[in-house]
Design a protein around this nucleic acid. Structure first.
Length: 489
RNA sequence: GGUCGCGUGGCCGAGGGGCUUAGGCACCGGUCUGCAAAACCGGUUACGGCGGUUCGAAUCCGCCCGCGACCUCCA
């Protein structure tokens, strides 16, 4: 098996060979959701992308520890009136405990991810459960002289850090540029520099979520949880840190600075970022009225959707684009993807009834090699699908007796298909609706009668039976010497 | 305004100096069929604009246009 996986490292802006720090173990950390609202496409893309990576790494034989956090402390809202915690605000508005909000949406997120066949990470740490680790990290950074305390809040001293290290190396920024581009700020006198960021923030008395600390009763800074929890569970350094491109700055930049300041060395060896999602070419946002939650996709209950789309269609569609390209959703594009997915799955079912011979028209070794090449090239799933659909055409031809395969190659074909479609891409056949519970023998019996009608040239009856069955969701396909049927819907 | 990225055929989406007319969907023609459906075979449509480098550019460079991400616990 070709294990020569190359991934794009955002830090180097280039593809490089992936070599674990401590093989065969691989540490993978991905920024998870802030649970204050329903999951939407912006959550689905990184989840599916890094699920693919997780699955592929495991397939390659690595022992992967996959950590994806749940942010339940809540980042402050960027445009909120009083810098209010997102979760706390929602809790106040709905008169619930903040933890009820977090719990509710965490469950909803899990449900959606399960529907899309996204494997659960091995560890899903919550920020609220790691306040102590975060405080320890603040202390360490203070000890090392890269932070300062003001009125109960602790800020990271970016200027000091930048004298010895390179602040901005991930996002391609430099400190002078940041100084020039920082907006006019009020009430920021606590900070030495406007680009300093909070490690610990003193909370106002009315702030719902706060914890005691050496500095004040408050809450951890925005970027701290990922630094603290990733190294807590994956060690230092660890292999891969993933997340959406929108998190590169400031979130991941600050993570690098924090880890380096606390431990003298960067924590992350490979940074991976998935690109963003647009809808009908526009960025997705609540204010633009094109904000679609996953549940709305699954139910079709949104003005931009012509119909409902299954979770697997969303997954397939996501994987049809490369993870580093922007992905544009539209009802039309999803309808096309739905058909492609159906074609792919149908071919998978046909493999079991293929008859072999003693000659073959396709070298499965070549196909397998192409599959691995595509995946090893920074998880190029669009290329993988192109090769898979070539294989689908071959399978269909085999089914129709228009191509040949050796007996002994059939199990190999089965396993090749299953490995890549089911195991690595995580695509699965979704359960059909209840209307499909028609007994097979009954359908067979009816179709036998229809076959007799056809023999008697009673096409009127034959067509009536076919039409009626279609209404029940049974698609009849005539073949040379009989018929074939499948349940639709 | 700054930094970074993108712009491919009717739609989605790979590739990335001459070979891939990637692949999916749609459309057209053919095979098969009583008719359909499915499948298979074949076909059509392309590299945002203008310059430059080169024997040769969709691919490299410059400019322009359009789109996107980010620009901080901060009103």
């Amino acid at each position: 098996m070709n294990k020569d996986l190359h991934i794009h490292n955002s830090l180097k802006r280039t593809k490089e060979q992936f070599e674990p720090y401590n093989p065969p173990y691989v540490g993978l950390y991905v920024c998870g959701p802030t649970v204050y609202g329903e999951a939407h496409l912006g959550h689905a893309r990184p989840a599916v992308t890094f699920d693919l990576l997780f699955r592929y790494l495991k397939h390659l034989g690595y022992k992967v520890r996959y950590v994806r956090n749940i942010t339940d402390v809540g980042h402050l809202e960027s445009d909120a009136d009083e810098g209010e915690d997102k979760i706390a605000k929602k809790a106040r508005l709905e008169k619930l405990e903040p933890m009820e909000i977090a719990e509710h949406y965490a469950r909803s997120y899990h449900r959606n991810m399960d529907q899309m066949n996204v494997l659960r990470p091995g560890i899903e740490p919550r920020a609220s459960g790691h306040i102590i680790e975060q405080q320890q990290m603040v202390k360490k950074i203070l000890e090392n002289g890269y932070a300062y305390e003001r009125n109960g809040s602790v800020y990271f001293d970016v200027e000091k850090y930048n004298r010895e290290h390179n602040y901005g190396k991930l996002s391609g920024r430099n400190i002078e540029e940041l100084r020039a581009n920082t907006r006019e700020l009020e009430g920021q006198q606590e900070k030495k520099n406007p680009f300093d960021f909070a490690l610990w923030k003193k909370a106002a008395p009315e702030h719902i979520m706060q914890w005691p600390s050496d500095w004040s009763s408050g809450f951890p800074g925005w970027h701290l949880e990922c630094s603290a929890m990733s190294t807590r569970y994956l060690g230092h350094p660890f292999d891969i840190h993933g997340g959406g491109m929108d998190l590169v700055f400031p979130h991941h930049e600050c993570e690098i600075a924090q880890s380096t300041a606390a431990k003298g060395q960067e924590s992350v060896r490979y940074w991976m970022h998935n690109n963003m999602v647009t809808i009908n070419g526009q960025k997705m946002g609540k204010s633009l009225h094109n904000f679609i939650t996953l549940n709305q996709f699954f139910s079709g209950d949104h003005e931009l959707l012509n119909k409902a789309f299954s979770p697997m269609t969303i997954r397939f569609f996501t994987l049809q684009a490369h993870y580093r390209s922007p992905l544009d959703f539209s009802s039309e594009a999803l309808e096309a993807a739905e058909k492609g997915l159906e074609k792919l799955l149908k071919a998978g079912e046909l493999i079991d009834r293929i008859k072999g011979g003693d000659q073959t028209d396709l070298d499965l070794g070549d196909v397998e090699e192409k599959f691995y090449q595509a995946m090893n090239d920074d998880l190029n799933t669009p290329i993988l699908f192109a090769h898979l659909f070539d294989l689908v055409r071959y399978i269909n031809s085999l089914d129709q007796g228009q191509a040949r395969i050796r007996h002994e190659d059939i199990p190999r074909l089965r396993s090749l298909y299953d490995t890549f479609v089911y195991d690595i891409l995580g695509i699965r056949r979704e359960s059909k609706s209840d209307s499909s519970q028609l007994p097979g023998e009954l359908i067979e019996m009816i179709l036998q009668i229809r076959l007799e009608a056809k023999k008697n040239k009673d096409f009127e009856t034959a067509d009536k039976i076919r039409d009626r069955l279609r209404e029940l969701g049974v698609i009849v396909k005539d073949t040379k010497d009989g018929y074939d049927w499948e349940v639709k819907r």
